[in-house]
Every structure is written in C-alpha cells, then in structure tokens.
Design a protein around this nucleic acid. Structure first.
Lengths: 210, 210
DNA sequence: TAGATTGTTAATCGATTAACAATC
DNA sequence: TAGATTGTTAATCGATTAACAATC
C-alpha cells in the first residue's frame, strides 16, 4: 500500500469505481480477474488499470491476474474504509435530511453523530434517532466531540461561516453540498457535491452544439 | 457561440463554475472583468480562462476585458439555460424527494412534471403539487408526454431496467443518482451523481498516505 | 497615443496508451 | 515447458501554461 507517492487526482477519482466493480465481482464469487477482463467491465483500458493499481503496490501476478478478494481489500484500505468516521450534518433541509436518512453510509463506517440546523421548528426532531440541534450549539459540540467529517448542507450564504467554525475546531474533512467554493486551510480536505453544476453539465451536453 | 467544435469535457465541466461566478459579479453590479481578475476569484489561470472562453467565441475585447452581463448571457446560452426542460423523477426515496423539493431547479428552467415510485404507499402523495405515480404507469406516461430529462433515484438493481424504459421512449437526458454505470445508446446523455464515490474520495484523501 | 488585455500560437506539463521484458 | 498476464518503460496524446502580436 506504499509504493509511489504523488498519486494524481485522476487516479484517486477512479478508485471508488474500482472498488464498486470489485465488490460486485466478490459478491458474484469471482476469484480472479485480469486487467483485460476488468477493462471490458469497467471501461478503462487494461493498461490504465495496471498503471493505476501499480501506484499502490504489486497487487497482481504475472500469468494469473489479480485475486479479487485481495485486490478488493487493498482498495478498501486505500480508500480509508478500514477506519470509522464520525460525521455531522449541518443543515437539515432537503439534502441534509436525505443524507441523514441514507443508512448505507452508516454501513460502510460513517457514523452520523449529530445534526444541526438554524430553524427552531426542527430542534429536537429526530432522524434515525439522531436529534436535530440548534446550530448555535455547534461550536460547543465540536469542543466536546471528535468529528472527522462535517457534511455541509446549508444555503451558500451561510456555508463559509459554518466552515470556519468547524475548521477552527479541528475538523479535517468537509463534504460540501453548498454551491460555493469554500475557503479552507491546506490541511483540510473539501469534497464538493455541486448538484446544480452537474445538472448544468447535462443541459449543456443536451444542446449538442458541442 | 459557434467557434470551435470538439470542446473537451474538461472545458465543459468548468462552464457551470464560470456561470456561477459571473452571476455573482452581475448581482454585484460589476460591469467588466479581465481574465486576470476573474482568475483571482475563480482559481483558474487567466490563460486557461481565455482559452476556455475562446472555444465558443470572441467574447472579450483587447484592452478592456469581458463585459460581465454579455459573457454571463453567452455562457447561459451555451449551458442550454435559455431553454425549458421537462423532467421526471423516478424513485421517491430520500434523494428523489430531496430533488423534488428543490425549487431552485424549477427557477432555472427545469420543470418537474411527474414523480414515479414502486411503493404503493406513496401513490397519490404530492410533493410541491406533483403527484407520485405508480412506476408501472411510467411507460404510458412517456408515450403521452415529452420528457427531456429523467432523474433516476431508484436503487441500483432497478436502475438499468428503468433506464431502458425511458430510453425506449425517446428520453435523451438522464441525471443518474443510482450507484451504477448505465448502459445507454450513444445519443443519450447520462450525467452521474455518485454520492458514495464522492464520499469515498473524501475518505481516501483524508488518509493522506497519498 | 500609451496602456491594457485579448486571441492565439508555441512550449510545457501531465495523463493515457502501447509495447514488451520479466515471470508466474 | 508454453501461455498468459503482469509491472514498467517508452511513445503518444491532450490539456494547461506561457508568450506575444494584434488591437481596443
């Protein structure tokens, strides 16, 4: 798991897809797979698959290919899925509630520990047994609890100030659903989900003048 | 708006971000902006901005820069936002409901015309005045109404078969939230939002062995 | 006019693909 | 052993950045 450094973002962005296909193969009791076979399923070239995997180690074997279970485990580890993460959701609107209700993240090690909102009508309501708290208590909550990932689902005008509160309290990972580019120190990882940008990409491509 | 062909996906994926920043400038009554100034805001190089915009036309003026209102309008047009789109949501679970409730898409021209689900308990319920219908009526609905974009929010095991129904009925755009790679004819545009892949990217980066 | 800034070409950088020796 | 398939180097391709003449 420690071969080359400076893995490019292009490679990292492909890893979850490898993971998904390997999980499927594992579930179908496939024992081994060659880069060529995987290539046909996943749609990357065999060459690229070998290059990608080689960033992290010699996972294959000449003449044989890759052991599915082993490769799956390696990628699971690279993706950080051997660990557990404490998460909080900030903003219990449409998206915040949808994410809160989504139990699959719990299953793979992302534990939702609290939900915050600005709307008093929501205080005390529970989603999957987790109470929605006053956003004014966020700062003190963070001082008492370790949070690995904060999921920002507030309107964009509030996102930066929320971001500063959580960063100040040592949160290192942000999953940002607000349609804004957050300003953070270098050591904080921000992963954006910009739904409207995705929809606009679709409408752009639909107007095939391109 | 019709300069070069073969615009790369890298450029297209940046367009929504240009649009967002230009909207902000416009709202702040900024009249003109140079590639250098925009560069500092948006975080792309000035050179890249000029290259990107030049794919679509000569929008700038030497010695002056770009007229914000004009450039905004051009990009709005390139993104296909001068048109209206009829959309349907298939799958009224967490994500489907969140998207259905999200009125901002309506505001920019994406009209939700129907919602479908497999769960009889949901039939007849309304989200923003739009009734949830039996998924078995999807095929006949599509034969009667023009749908530009189908938003797939069903579990991955059902996504491909749903996809085939909508493609068969001439839907050309798919916004796919199911964690699966859909198989579609070439002339159908699929834009994926794979939330779990986004989350896994985040946890991968958080484990900074990279 | 002089200064500013574009559009565009050329140079660089990085990512993907091809090729093949190593080896299971 | 012979066949298969990797790991890895080299070649290609594409995207980004730099440079500058054109021109407002």
């Amino acid at each position: 798991m420690d071969k080359k450094k400076n893995i490019s973002m292009a490679v990292i962005k492909r890893l979850p897809k490898y993971y998904r296909y390997l999980q499927e193969l594992k579930n179908n009791d496939v024992d081994r797979i060659s880069s060529k076979e995987l290539s046909e399923k996943i749609g990357f070239t065999a060459s690229q698959i070998r290059q990608d995997l080689n960033c992290f180690g010699d996972f294959g074997q000449q003449g044989y290919g890759y052991n599915v279970k082993e490769l799956y485990d390696q990628i699971k580890n690279i993706l950080g899925l051997k660990k557990e993460y404490n998460t909080i959701i900030i903003g219990a609107g449409n998206i915040g509630q949808a994410i809160a209700n989504y139990i699959n993240f719990q299953k793979i090690g992302f534990t939702l520990t609290s939900i915050f909102d600005i709307n008093p009508k929501l205080f005390g309501l529970k989603i999957r047994d987790i109470e929605i708290s006053d956003i004014d208590t966020l700062d003190s909550f963070l001082k008492k609890h370790t949070v690995d990932i904060a999921i920002i689902c507030v309107p964009s005008k509030n996102a930066q100030s929320i971001c500063e509160v959580i960063v100040k309290n040592g949160v290192k990972g942000i999953w940002n659903f607000a349609p804004i580019d957050l300003n953070t120190p270098e050591n904080v990882i921000v992963e954006n989900v910009h739904l409207s940008e995705s929809l606009l990409t679709l409408s752009c491509l639909l107007n095939g003048d391109i």
